[in-house]
Design a protein around this nucleic acid. Structure first.
Lengths: 360, 360
DNA sequence: CCATTCGTTGCAATCGTGTGCAACAAACGA
DNA sequence: TCGTTTGTTGCACACGATTGCAACGAATGG
């Protein structure tokens, strides 16, 4: 650390000699402008305490020497990092979920919303079994709070984090006895709309693909049940297949149904990815969508419209979701009221659920 | 700022009174352990200068009060942020590219590689027209360097950044007269493999979808040309359609070919997304893939295997790519040699290019 | 002519941590 | 017994910025 020694020798020296290649700092600009660092600081933060002429001169100097203020030092002084951590839980075994296109779009939406508010975004993958580590992101001052994408089955750990007063907002389902704040879509209505649509297009034996143990999926399943009940269709437990997000799961789900000779004419898949894989598996078995089986997915990821057949699905409001997550976190940090938020969902009708032509 | 005032009054006080709700800091741990902050600092950084018994006692105290060290302050002192900025250029008009699944997978791979090396990842979207702003990420000390995903047509701006000594590594093509460092896949060989494969499966009139003005695409196009030449197939400029990444582009490309009655039996699309859209557009026109037209994509995104027909494509080494980008940046920051890197690509054969059955 | 106000600037303390140097006790050797 | 070494710890300053307070000249008012 050569500079350390230099500074020591001169001790009370005011005129810092900018070593070439060394990063510019406020003192350098101050020297160039013939003022103190106080004035430079005030000028660059548009304080009204500084003369207009001085301000513009300093601003000009700063720009022409492409000086930019040291964020770390400023944050330390201001006790504020203007940074939000976005965490994607990471399952060491499957590694599957960060690649879910839905989460990814959410990432983009978050990036926009945060930029809009002038915040930086720190992206972390955290081992899902060590979710307690996210507390460090805030405790270490790296970020003012955490947005977690992917509730999964970590309800208890998330509650514990919230109880430890970690500023935390989760994308997911609102659950009973939850102390953390969630933002999510209306999964029950979503499930209901999807199932209802399949019923209205003439299906009666509708399978559900997804793991109802996961909160969000559970609520979609709830909507599925309500729709069936409303139309007087009895629930057949054999039609509920706990397909996960992992790769071969949909295929196995379809296989299981077919092998047991369980008849079905509709599938409500709890994500678009699952739906696409299911359609592929069905096709392998010689079943054509939508002629033999109507399929509805969930998420409305970008590829759903290019898929063949294009996918009927429940659109989650990604843009609004990102904004809502950010707003919720900022409110939480500011100690404002922390009510969880449920955003509306919408049915998007495409080819995969087209009514099968009436049998001749 | 209540604490500021408190501290002022007591001035030389050593025993900081931890206000409830206030964040723990090193001084608090020091008080609890009855030592100075120096010792705590050394203990937590595993310095050999501290007694073993003292170290474990301090470590225990820190853990039980879940104290974690203030990263900002440490970074300021150490003059090092252990953070890498990952930038995705952002086209205000199209907004399209961050959603490309390939970039997204790269993001995941980068997150892994950085975590592995103990670095944080700062994710930014930057207006593609203001790429000069990425210099600030480093100049402000937010990050030690920048990894940029998406070279696009910004060659000159990137060169300028590199000339300004901004530590920068770009995912993209290696170009002549380039002063910045790139990591990318072997696009020429990729394009060659793809085209060769279409030729070997019996196609002769092979269209190219993509904008050869973009460096990576241009190199894939170069490979396309070489393959044609090698097999003695004349290049037909009308078969080259500068489809962009935006939505309707593939459709228009297909429409353009068909309207002009230009015959073709193969398509090499310069990305999987483009390929999928092209297949959809072909289907709308009554052309079946692979029977009437063989299609090969590029990237091997996850969905390619679930698409129908499953997509023959050129796999880009995403995992290795992320590692290579990170290694390159770290080397660059350490002033090591900065050679651009070209990673091998691989042909993945699936259904979309299956040889059409010999006409009876 | 002096007191006061106003506009502008600088001094110095501060944010939380790391580390060179000195201090100090215990152990050791002569 | 005393100097030297060794192991452990604390003091004080530095990292690069912000800001309360004081200072100071000019303008203003009485």
């Amino acid at each position: 650390m050569p500079r350390t020694h230099k500074r020591k020798r001169f001790k009370k020296v005011v005129t810092r000699i900018p070593v070439s290649g060394q990063r510019m700092q406020m003192q350098d600009i101050a020297n160039l402008a013939g003022v103190s660092t106080s004035t430079v600081s005030r000028a660059l933060s548009h304080s009204s305490l500084v003369n207009d002429e001085t301000r513009t001169r300093i601003a000009e100097l700063a720009r022409s020497h492409n000086y930019s203020i040291n964020i770390g030092a400023r944050n330390l002084r201001l006790q504020h990092s203007r940074t939000v951590a976005v965490v994607v839980p990471y399952d060491v075994r499957t590694r599957q979920h960060i690649s879910d296109p839905f989460f990814v779009s959410m990432l983009g939406s978050l990036a926009d919303a945060l930029t809009e508010q002038g915040y930086d975004m720190l992206l972390s993958r955290v081992d899902a079994e060590r979710l307690d580590l996210v507390a460090q992101l805030e405790a270490s001052g790296r970020a003012i709070g955490v947005i977690l994408i992917g509730q999964w089955h970590h309800h208890d750990q998330l509650n514990e984090l919230a109880n430890r007063k970690v500023p935390l907002v989760v994308w997911g389902a609102r659950l009973p006895r939850q102390t953390y704040c969630t933002v999510g879509s209306d999964n029950i209505t979503g499930g209901l709309l999807a199932t209802q649509h399949l019923i209205e297009t003439g299906r009666r034996r509708i399978a559900f693909f997804g793991d109802p143990e996961l909160p969000e999926i559970g609520q979609r399943y709830e909507g599925y049940q309500r729709a069936l009940k409303h139309h007087g269709i009895p629930l057949d437990a054999r039609l509920v297949v706990a397909a996960e997000f992992s790769e071969g799961s949909s295929r196995r789900a379809v296989d299981a149904l077919l092998e047991k000779k369980i008849v079905f004419d509709g599938v409500f898949a709890s994500s678009d990815l699952l739906a696409m894989r299911a359609i592929g598996a069905l096709r392998e078995k010689g079943l054509i969508v939508p002629r033999d089986v109507g399929v509805v997915g969930y998420d409305d990821i970008e590829l759903s419209q290019y898929f063949h057949p294009s996918l009927t699905t429940i659109r989650q409001p990604i843009l609004k979701g990102g904004e809502a997550l950010v707003n919720a976190l900022l409110a939480l940090v500011a100690n404002k009221a922390l009510s969880s938020e449920v955003l509306p969902t919408e049915l998007v009708v495409r080819e995969s659920s087209a009514p099968s032509p009436a049998p001749p």
